[in-house]
Every structure is written in structure tokens, then in C-alpha cells.
């Protein structure tokens, strides 16, 4: 019994540790409240317990218990629904929305992280069972590195170049360099935009990146993250200053326009580079035969 106790505890500790380390709450990551934190740590604890008791159950041997564990793991699919529902409800009262693609991405990550916890707990407890607690430390560290490094995903900064763009008007048409953004009617609004607005060009490095930027969901994610950091002067009935990302149809690069509360071009570029590439928006044309042929 004592031996199994050590096996289970080592698994649970490693699992919860992984959950805690990947549960970040910076400017764009949800959750942001202690209760949200607690919910996920608690779910992480349950997931870790599941993973940790699997090995002792096999070693005992108690195959019925193992079957039940597999059933219990299915419950973690619910986490995705829970996150999606919460974020969708919050979405309705937002001026600048995250967009469905971003929400789906966040929900998937939350689900996947719990599976990661289960696997970590399983591997750590297995190591404790067969090799001893010293080796379990090594296993736990390896899985923590995997969780932090390999599960990181890619960022917009990896696939594009972001450079400052010049905001100007062609008649009543607002433009960032050569990209048409929108028609602005009032002369006073145009002056305001020229005075306070910031523009950047987001240039894709290859055809995959161009397809990624083509997705409206990815653009909404970029806009959401920028607004979350730099703010925007949009208000409920004053939507003329709404941030926008439009593409140059010929080259595929984006013109991004915002009237921020903090007009800091360097930070704007840094924030855009830090936006995650959404799984659903990711372009993969260069991975296909026809895509490569078409590109050359």
C-alpha cells in the first residue's frame, strides 16, 4: 500500500505542477480571475489523479478499474464545451470581439492541456513504480519541458514581417501605404485618424503565412490582442475609429489600422508578433503537392 501511495502521489504532484505551469494569465489569456484559476487547477488535480492511479491499478492487477479510468478520461472533453460556452457568452457584450476561431483555439488548448496532465501523471507514476522515485523526477522534468516548449505553438511573429505603415487619405478612402482600409466620411474624423492613428503592414514570409493572414478569424484575433494591450478609442455609437485589418489583394499583405489609447508603434508591432497562429486559420498549402507546384 505504501509503495502505491508513493507512486500515486508522485504522479499527482507532477501532473498538477504541469497544469500550474501552463496555466498562464497574461493580457490575452483567459482565465483572469482567482475562481477561474481554481477551477482549472482542480480539474488538473482530477486529471493528474486519473493518470496516477492507472499504473497501480494495472500492477495490482485490477483491470476493471483501468476500464473505468478510460471512461473518466472521456469527461475531459466537456472542458472544451465549458470554455467555449463561457467565452461565447462574454463575446456578446464586447466591442472588439475575439471571434469564433480564437475561442475555438483557446477551448481546444484547455482540453489538450488536461490530456497532457494525464500523460505526465501516468509517465511519472510508471517511472516511480518500476525505476524508483529518483528517476520519476527526471521523467517529470522531461514532461514539463515538453509541455512548455513543444506545446507552445507558433506565433504571428514567426511567419510574418511587421513594419510601420503610413496612414493617409486618398479622397475619402483611408489607406495604410497601398492597402485600402475604409471610407471615412467626416473631415473631422479624418483629421483625428491622421493625428492619433497608427498603421502597420503585416507581410507574410511565404504562401502558408499568406493563407493564414487571409483568414478573417486570424485577423480578428490580431485586432483583439492589440486592443487588449493598447486600447482603442472606439465607443458604442462611435464605430468610425474601429481597428481594421484589410489585405492587399495582389500581394496578400495586410494593412492594419488602429486608433489606440497608447500610440506606441514599437509596442504595437511587438504585440502583433506575439499573437498566436490559430490552429483553424493556419495555412498549409506548401505542405501539399499542388500547393508547392502552384507556388513556383
Amino acid at each position: 500500500m505504501d509503495k502505491y501511495l508513493l507512486v500515486i502521489i508522485s504522479g499527482i504532484v507532477a501532473g498538477v505542477l504541469v497544469r500550474f505551469l501552463v496555466l498562464r494569465s497574461d493580457y490575452r489569456h483567459y482565465p483572469a480571475y482567482p475562481h477561474g484559476y481554481f477551477t482549472h487547477i482542480a480539474l488538473g488535480f482530477i486529471a493528474a489523479s486519473l493518470g496516477a492511479v492507472a499504473i497501480p491499478a494495472i500492477a495490482k492487477p485490477d483491470y476493471v478499474a483501468v476500464t473505468f479510468l478510460v471512461l473518466a478520461a472521456q469527461q475531459f472533453r466537456e472542458i472544451r464545451n465549458m470554455e467555449r460556452e463561457t467565452l461565447n457568452n462574454l463575446e456578446e457584450s464586447k466591442l472588439i470581439r475575439r471571434g469564433n476561431d480564437y475561442i475555438e483555439g483557446i477551448a481546444r488548448v484547455f482540453e489538450a492541456r488536461n490530456y497532457l496532465v494525464i500523460i505526465t501523471a501516468l509517465a511519472t507514476s510508471a517511472t516511480t513504480q518500476w525505476l524508483g522515485i529518483k528517476y520519476a523526477f527526471i521523467t517529470a522534468v522531461i514532461f514539463i519541458i515538453i509541455a512548455l516548449k513543444l506545446m507552445r505553438g507558433s506565433y504571428i511573429g514567426d511567419i510574418v514581417e511587421v513594419v510601420e505603415g503610413r496612414i493617409h487619405f486618398n479622397g475619402s478612402i483611408l489607406m495604410v501605404d497601398d492597402v485600402i482600409i475604409m471610407n471615412v466620411g467626416l473631415a473631422s474624423t479624418r483629421e483625428k485618424i491622421l493625428q492619433d492613428g497608427l498603421g502597420v503592414l503585416i507581410k507574410p514570409k511565404d504562401d502558408d503565412a499568406r493563407l493564414t493572414l487571409h483568414s478573417p478569424g486570424q485577423r480578428m484575433a490580431i485586432i483583439h490582442d492589440v486592443v487588449a494591450v493598447l486600447g482603442t478609442k472606439v465607443d458604442m455609437n462611435e464605430t468610425e475609429l474601429a481597428p481594421m485589418a484589410r489585405k492587399n489583394v495582389d500581394t496578400g499583405h495586410l494593412g492594419f489600422f488602429i486608433v489606440p489609447n497608447e500610440p506606441d508603434i514599437e509596442m504595437l508591432i511587438a504585440v502583433i508578433k506575439g499573437v498566436p497562429v490559430l490552429e483553424t486559420a493556419q495555412g498549409t498549402t506548401l505542405k501539399s503537392f499542388y500547393g508547392r507546384k502552384a507556388a513556383d
Partner: peptide, 29 residues
Amino acid sequence: MEKVSLLLSRILGGVIHDLENGVYFIFRH
């Protein structure tokens, strides 16, 4: 025209667009 457009856009919750021929309109996106 500018003044009326501004007032109407704020009241109606739309965006002012300019057709560049002396016609403005309020559009809700």
C-alpha cells in the same frame, strides 16, 4: 451636411461614408 451627419451617426449608431459628390450616408456595418 457635416454637422447633420455627425449627429445622425451618433444617434443612429452608424458610420458616416462619403460618396465624394456631395452625398453622405449613414451605414450600419
